[in-house]
């Protein structure tokens, strides 16, 4: 597969904040590329620069080897953008919204009507097309938000956290839609802080934190980074710094993250529970419950940053 997009040493700062701090990655034609990271990692800023909305302080974005920082027209007609926020006109109907955005891309007449019909089937809102958007549920608004980006058959679709704040049914519908679009050949860049979505959808993933790419690869390649480590989630009667210090000294414990009344222990091998029980014997701390998580992108993020993905 050829590299459709090349991101080179991209930087963007706001005052003293380095929102994006010199990142590099490629997006291959026909793949679903995931950008995974917690809120504030810099994903939306990267997306805004790729979609030519923000100008980078330095670095370049090449689309088919042409700089879209210098001339955004190289990508405009090939690009569909699904912003994180609902970018629709709430007092207009779904149909009026689709017509407006379709016309902006030069569609008109029968072609526009056919595109609207096709897109409304994909996003599943045919029966509510004539209703005002402010009467839609959150999930329907999200789906229409996606539909607007599909009207002109873009070659590359950028989706920025498209499932934030919606019900599971709409979420599943959106994920299935993304899969279907990709099967038809559309290249998709998908950002999310939900690692399950990224694991489910993406061929390759870049993990971002504090404006930097900390790892890039397929989901399997990323999980291999953590090797045989896995997470043991222990819920205690009480969590204090003293407890964290006691457990940090245990053999095979890579890192410890506090999550409410629980501690997430990233460990190398089995048998940690016996060691924990032995360590806490006679102390005021008692294990209330325990769970063992297999390695996933969450584990990878925890392993690489020492932080939980949803912190």
């Amino acid at each position: 597969m050829t590299n459709l997009l090349k991101i080179r040493n991209l930087r963007k700062s706001y005052g003293n904040i380095n929102a994006v701090d010199g990142i590099d990655f490629d997006v291959r034609e026909g793949e679903i590329f995931g950008l995974l990271g917690p809120n504030g990692a810099g994903k939306s800023t990267v997306i805004s620069m790729i979609s030519t909305l923000f100008k980078p302080d330095s670095g370049d974005v090449l689309y088919n080897d042409k700089s879209i920082v210098e001339n955004n027209r190289f990508i405009q007609s090939d690009l569909g953008i699904v912003p994180q926020d609902i970018a629709l006109y709430p007092t207009l109907s779904g149909l009026q919204n689709l017509k407006f955005w379709g016309r902006n891309y030069g569609l008109k007449g029968r072609e526009l009507d056919e595109k609207i019909l096709g897109v409304s089937k994909i996003i599943g809102i045919e029966e509510r097309l004539k209703d005002r958007v402010d009467k839609y549920s959150g999930g329907m608004k999200r789906r229409l938000n996606i539909g607007v980006a599909l009207l002109h058959d873009p070659k590359i679709l950028i989706m920025d956290e498209p499932t934030v704040g919606i019900d599971p049914q709409s979420r599943n519908h959106i994920l299935e839609t993304v899969k279907d679009l990709n099967k038809k050949g559309m290249t998709i860049i998908y950002t999310s802080h939900y690692m399950e979505e990224v694991e489910f959808l993406c061929d390759r993933v870049s993990i971002m934190d504090d404006g930097k790419i900390i790892a890039t690869g397929t989901v399997d390649e990323l999980i291999e980074i953590v090797g045989s480590t896995f997470n043991v989630v222990l819920e205690f009667n009480i969590v204090e710094e003293e407890l964290v210090q006691m457990l940090k000294g245990l053999e095979n414990v890579q890192s410890i993250t506090i999550d409410g009344d629980s501690l997430i222990l990233n460990v190398k091998e089995n048998g940690i529970l016996k060691a924990v029980v032995d360590k806490l014997n006679g102390s005021k701390y008692h294990v209330v419950s325990m769970d063992v998580e297999k390695p996933n992108l969450e584990t990878v993020f925890l392993y690489l940053t020492g932080k939980a993905l949803r912190d």
Binding site: S51, Q76, P83, I86, A87, L88, W101, N104, Y105, V148
Partner: peptide, 13 residues
């Protein structure tokens, strides 16, 4: 504020 300005900008308006 409703992000349609940004969306229009991206679409070449």
């Amino acid at each position: 504020n409703q992000y349609t300005y940004q969306r229009m900008s991206v679409s070449g308006i």
